[in-house]
Design a protein around this nucleic acid. Sequence first.
DNA 1: GCAAAAGTGTTCGTAGTACACCCATGA
DNA 2: TCATGGGTGTACTACGAACACTTTTGC
Lengths: 247, 247
Amino acid sequence: MPAEGREPPGGYDPSAFEPFAVTVDLAVFTVRENRLHVLLVERGQEPYAGAWALPGGFVLPRESAGQAARRELAEETGLSEETATALHLEQLGTYSDPDRDPRMRVVSVAYAALVPDLPEPRGGGDAARARWTEFRSVPALAFDHADILADADERVGAKLEYTTLATEFCPPEFTLGELAQVYETVWGTALDRPNFRRKVLSTPGFVQPAEGPPRRTGGRGKPAALYRAGDATRLHPPLLRPEGRTR
Amino acid sequence: MPAEGREPPGGYDPSAFEPFAVTVDLAVFTVRENRLHVLLVERGQEPYAGAWALPGGFVLPRESAGQAARRELAEETGLSEETATALHLEQLGTYSDPDRDPRMRVVSVAYAALVPDLPEPRGGGDAARARWTEFRSVPALAFDHADILADADERVGAKLEYTTLATEFCPPEFTLGELAQVYETVWGTALDRPNFRRKVLSTPGFVQPAEGPPRRTGGRGKPAALYRAGDATRLHPPLLRPEGRTR
DNA sequence: GCAAAAGTGTTCGTAGTACACCCATGA
DNA sequence: TCATGGGTGTACTACGAACACTTTTGC
């Protein structure tokens, strides 16, 4: 409840609350070379100087947490503001352990984002380096970022089951094989391609054929039909990962 | 990212951030007389003095948001700390619009809770009144609490589908009819009792028979067997509401 | 006996799974 | 012509929806 709602029975002076810093942290996922990657930055200052961490930053006085997350995403990935605005950002939750930052009280709102394969992040103007890291090889992270990342992975995996979010990992035009590859990469399981194909095509609005009937080859093999994302955002019924596995 | 993570390229002084107040808001649901109810409090101060709002309060300097939510829940419902600790609290999300509180910058972490039918909340020591209100008759609420409540309702409905959370609404021993009633009340749909029964009993760990084979009557009709909540917390496969309806 | 709620049995349709098989291309 | 990935066909199975029917109580 906002300030000066009812006070706890013990009495509490609304003007005496300790100030909190509010930040956002981002778990930005992409699929590169059929492996799940996440964007990490190297910290330049103490604490945890030299350690890897999730990108993020302060929420500015006149923006919401979601706006801050979008701004940080554009800055870290080099995407234009417009492109970043179109991407799906998922609020994961808020991490508020009093000791999560050793210096002061910091409450952080975590977001997960799925982006298509992008070039290596530009270094940015400041000291911190940023790079894509394979998910399975993520090193120890600063603060409670390992927890956040684990939650993000679980959430993204679950989201693929009942939304069309997987298309966010794909370029504007993609083959069904590429789409299946996204699921397999995020879930870490193999899928039956024929059944996957039927499932996707029988779900109205999941994908639509790319208008001109061009085809494309992934090297060898029969050229595949191209599709683009459809209007639907939810999947009824869901596309469940085999045996409820979670990697 | 916590304080002094990398700064935005434009430059940002970590010591100059505006202080935020951090609060928790609670959407506490219960089932009374087969109808969904939510706990509301009447505001005693401006802004929105006299208006109804969700219970909640400040996060104290040495507690996490989750701890604050549990504390508030115990205070508002009159439950003992131990009982409140055992209840399931679900973090819904964080509401951070810069203008959501007209006086200052307040970021609020919202939680949903499901409790069995409780006596009318004690007035508490302060001026604010609290009462159970039927969900469908909730008046206009202060701040963005109507948004929070709508999100909470949706989340609770979805949670029932793939968790055993419905047992939280029930007394320690309950009949399958009562459990079905919870689903029907929250979802606003009718269920086929025979199928519901089979579904619940065939899900390992959802419920277990109450040891002594006592039976109970809900007035007329055949006495029903009593069950208590089982160990399981997840439902595989889920118990989907008919036709994906969402009320 | 009748209404009401608990509980059992059975049928039917649909959706997922598994897998055989054909097609189009590069090397 | 072989390997590779795209794409089609089909049988099997499991599970949910629907609903008939029996049981046990209060009135």
